[in-house]
């Protein structure tokens, strides 16, 4: 791997669900490098040449890095909040850039067309004005005051509601979404997308949730999220160009794409370019 990907090599990535690790371990890869997640106690991650990689167990997943992370894995304080149910959704492989998987997660405008009658519905297609910033202290991308009309915002929603959203990108291939919690007004449901970059145009996606919902069966919560993500998958696999363009020229963003614009700018600032296209073609 070339040195130009060093900033992303030094980041944390999910490589397995700790609860689903088979006795023989999980042979997988990270940014083109084969790694084995070993089901020892404690869990280890090793490379083919026997190098032990750093390991963090958090949010149900095994996290590792091929390099030397300068920071600990990002914090999601809600994960430790009493009363939340932590839902492991499992893995889905997608033939797309890991950065495209995150960018799609940040987009609201596609809801009525891809998640029809669930996360959006025609004619309620307008994305209202919302705020986007790159928070310097946390070094994260945040979108706030996002609102959207949704026929069935969550498994626990019984009718259409206007849902409030916040989006957060704390790492190049991870995103955290906060949305109106139908079961407990005043709190936010937390839905995350943890993306494991296998290659520049191939990734394993591990959705995970921390919800207030005392009624819905766990299986139904998993299936709701799998349904949403599998609706996205066929779109993601057909996006062109396959790598995410970081230079202007190839794609023309609209106001609804402000989160994506900030995400791309933040990626470029940090040289997080694994899965990105740098020169407009």
């Amino acid at each position: 791997m070339t040195v130009r990907h060093q900033p992303m090599i030094d980041e944390w990535y999910p490589v397995a669900l700790a609860s689903q690790l088979p006795p023989g371990g999980r042979a997988t890869q990270l940014m083109g490098t084969p790694v084995l997640v070993v089901a020892d106690d404690p869990i280890r991650v090793v490379t083919d040449d026997g190098r032990d990689l750093p390991v963090t167990l958090r949010y149900g997943h095994v996290w590792t890095s091929l390099g030397q992370p300068a920071k600990q894995l990002f914090d999601i304080p809600e994960a430790d909040q009493p009363g939340r149910r932590l839902i492991e959704v499992g893995v889905v492989r997608v033939r797309c850039s890991p950065l495209r998987a995150v960018e799609n997660f940040l987009d609201i405008a596609h809801f009525p067309f891809v998640h029809t009658d669930i996360l959006g519905a025609e004619p309620h297609t307008e994305v209202g004005k919302y705020d986007v910033e790159i928070r310097e202290k946390e070094d994260e991308v945040w979108a706030t005051k996002v609102q959207f009309y949704q026929p069935q915002a969550a498994k626990s929603a019984t009718g259409g509601i206007t849902t409030d959203y916040m989006y957060r990108v704390p790492a190049p291939t991870s995103s955290v979404l906060y949305k109106t919690c139908p079961a407990r007004p005043g709190e936010w449901d937390v839905i995350t997308l943890f993306v494991q970059p296998l290659q520049e145009d191939l990734c394993d996606v591990w959705p995970w949730m921390a919800l207030f919902d005392d009624e819905t069966a766990t299986t139904d919560l998993i299936h709701f999220q799998q349904m949403i993500f599998l609706q996205d998958r066929s779109i993601l696999e057909n996006q062109i160009p396959r790598l995410l363009p970081l230079d202007p020229g190839r794609e023309i963003p609209t106001r609804a794409d402000l989160t994506s614009v900030a995400y791309r700018r933040w990626l470029k600032r940090h040289q997080f370019t694994y899965g990105a296209q740098l020169v407009a073609q």
Binding site: L17, Q20, E88, V89, G90, V91, A217, T218, T219, D220, I222, H223, Q226
Partner: peptide, 10 residues
Amino acid sequence: RAVDVHPGRE
């Protein structure tokens, strides 16, 4: 009746 096929193998 929803069955947790993946990842639960129910």
